[in-house]
């Protein structure tokens, strides 16, 4: 590491235990995820023996064909899709309002939006459960969506607001100055500039929703989203190999888009950094 040599003079001694600790923490975070991938291929059906007695690909088609898993996956995708759309609209509106205008209570908007994510999940969950029971709303697909959309708003909001703040203040004014009305300005200038932020926010929101289990437990009734299905499989293991494969699938569905989102956010900040 060149930066280390140039800047650290007395820190060399501390570096070894420190490196050890750092590498240890990273391994601690990642090794369990690797094991998920290993166990998806174990030949064993009813235990978690390590090392696996043998490896096989046979569970993958079986898991993908499992009807309970399929319907849970389908429900999760539909919920995540609608929650993401809702969060996109609400989060972008809130971000635009906070960025463009001064108004009473502006500082508390961010605070309120982050509450559902910052408070323990169980608070949001039981609060919604109380509302459902108090005004006798039947559990449905929509109760899950409403719950998810609520805590997804903030990730879209944060992404879009950060992008607004990084872009030149006067871009909108410049567009109007050159003859574009508000709609043209939105279409030609605002949308292209927040596009990647919207995409990144949408991916994060989708992952968040796709993955959520605590709030969903309280708003889903008897329906099973994919995480809830996995959770129930863990409580009463009926079909471990299929759970193992599904777990791997979920990691891929959530983690890969996030990597992609990181990339587009990082990429667009590079080009913006240049124009500042």
């Amino acid at each position: 590491m060149p930066s280390k040599n140039s800047s650290q003079s007395g820190g060399e001694r501390a570096a070894w235990p420190l490196k050890f600790g750092a590498v240890g923490a990273i391994l601690f975070l990642h090794v369990p995820l690797w094991l998920i991938f290993l166990y998806a291929f174990t030949t064993e059906e009813s235990a978690y023996t390590f090392p696996p007695p043998g490896l096989t690909l046979k569970w993958i088609p079986q898991a993908l064909a499992n009807p309970a898993m399929q319907s849970a996956l389908y429900l999760s995708i539909r919920v995540a899709f609608l929650a993401t759309i809702t969060a996109l609209v609400l989060g972008t509106l809130a971000a635009a309002a906070v960025y463009r205008y001064d108004f009473f209570g502006k500082e508390s908007v961010s605070f309120m939006l982050i509450l559902p994510l910052a408070l323990p999940g169980i608070v949001t969950g039981i609060a919604m459960r109380s509302a459902i029971s108090l005004i006798h709303i039947p559990f449905s697909f929509w109760t899950i969506v409403i719950g998810h959309a609520t805590f997804c708003v903030v990730v879209v909001y944060n992404n879009v607001l950060a992008r607004f703040r990084r872009s030149s203040n006067s871009m909108i004014e410049a567009s109007m100055d050159l003859g574009a009305n508000s709609f043209q300005t939105f279409w030609h200038i605002v949308l292209p500039n927040i596009g990647t932020a919207l995409l990144a926010g949408a991916i994060l929101a989708f992952s968040l929703s796709f993955d959520e289990v605590i709030v969903t437990t309280f708003t889903a009734g008897n329906q099973q989203t994919l995480p809830i299905w996995i959770f129930s499989q863990m409580l009463k293991p009926r079909n471990r190999p299929i759970t193992n494969v599904t777990a791997m699938l979920v990691v891929l569905i959530t983690a890969l888009p996030i990597l992609f989102a990181q990339r587009i956010v990082a990429g667009s900040s590079d080009s913006e950094g240049g124009s500042k």
Binding site: L29, T49, S207, D211, A247, V251, T254
Partner: peptide, 26 residues
């Protein structure tokens, strides 16, 4: 990225991985 990626990977699955690790035969 290495720190945030697990954060965004599935919570249930991350919990599940420890079921594998901590099991009596794990």
């Amino acid at each position: 990225l290495a720190v945030t990626l697990p954060l965004w990977s599935s919570y249930v699955v991350r919990v599940y991985s420890w079921k594998l690790i901590l099991a009596q035969e794990g």
